[in-house]
């Protein structure tokens, strides 16, 4: 064997060893992933039996990891329902209880204090978002200000949905835009496309103390999300599709929030749309939100 060949062989061996070392963390990552999970189909293609198995697996996994018994439901949109939300800016006091309620209800990551709702403290006399700020503190309401909570507007023309390369996010018949956490590839194109900063990415695995886990979960909503996928406000579909109200509405101390079925002429939301002068955020971007704001006279 020539010296050159020997050197090459040595180089190749060293290279292979270094390669194995370099990818070692990948094996730790792959350790807790099953073949079933990997090959799971898109939500819309799962048969009822498939879905039941998927849900059982997820419940089992949560039990193993946290010791908590959770129930994950597959709540479907009801016929004749299209949800709408309206918010009275005259009486919102900026207490951020809605954001906090969302944090708890939707099993958000605790250390980051994540929530689907951001409350902006706005300058009176201006709708310029640039004059608003989110990190205000001290007693509220400040008489110089008004408060603008923003969450997913469940747009009728959602740019987030059209940009998704794999249809991991879509609009359901009741108007709610959902994400299949087991299908999303985590490209974050939708996050760049949303004009309302409504989407959140799981930069790491969410951490929630076992005692604080909300066990009433929906497959397309507040179940504990995996790492590396997108999530967003779902109008608490695990509640609202069962006739309950969204957690943020129940938490609001002033009654600024109005939620209901836009297709029901008798609903309170229809009354608001008819009798108040409502407006939507960033109407100019053409997203056609199902979320409305109004002021009392």
């Amino acid at each position: 064997m020539s010296r050159r060949t020997a050197l090459k062989a040595l180089g190749a061996t060293l290279g292979a060893a270094a390669f194995a070392q370099a990818i070692a963390p990948l094996t730790e990552w792959a350790a807790d992933m099953s073949v079933d999970e990997y090959l799971q189909k898109h939500y819309k293609e799962l048969s009822p039996v498939d879905l039941a198995m998927v849900i059982a697996r997820l419940e089992q996994r949560t039990k193993e990891e946290t010791g908590v018994e959770v129930h994950i439901g597959d709540y479907r949109p009801q016929p004749g329902v299209k949800f709408g939300y309206a918010l009275n800016l005259s009486i919102c006091v900026g207490c951020r209880r809605c954001a906090q309620a969302c944090h708890v209800e939707n099993n958000h990551d605790r250390p980051s204090g994540n929530s689907y709702i951001r409350v902006l403290e706005m300058q009176k006399g201006s709708m310029d978002l640039a004059k608003g700020r989110v990190n205000y503190s001290g007693p509220v309401p400040n008489p110089e200000k008004f408060y603008l909570p923003v969450q997913c507007q469940q747009c009728d023309k959602p740019p987030c949905v059209s940009v998704c390369p794999v249809e991991a996010t879509w609009k359901e018949t009741d108007g709610i835009v959902v994400v299949d956490y087991n299908w999303c590839i985590g490209c974050r194109y939708c996050e760049a496309a949303c004009p309302y900063h409504a989407r959140r990415f799981n930069w790491k695995k969410p951490e929630i103390p076992a005692a604080e886990i909300n066990p009433d979960q929906g497959y397309l909503s507040n179940r504990i999300r995996p790492q590396g996928v997108m999530e967003k406000c779902t109008f608490c579909l695990h509640r609202t599709r069962q006739g309950k109200l969204p957690a943020c509405l129940e938490a609001c101390p002033t009654g600024a929030r109005v939620f209901g079925n836009l297709l029901d002429p008798e609903s309170e939301i229809r009354w608001v749309l008819k009798n108040k002068r409502v407006f939507v955020l960033k109407e100019d971007v053409g997203t056609q939100p199902s979320f409305f704001y109004f002021f009392d006279e």
Partner: peptide, 20 residues
């Protein structure tokens, strides 16, 4: 490297995945 779940790349393949 920018993807959160690169192992799911096959979701993009026509027929087996859902190519939007």
């Amino acid at each position: 490297v920018d993807m959160g779940r690169p192992e799911r790349f096959w979701h993009m393949f026509p027929f087996v995945g859902r190519f939007n």
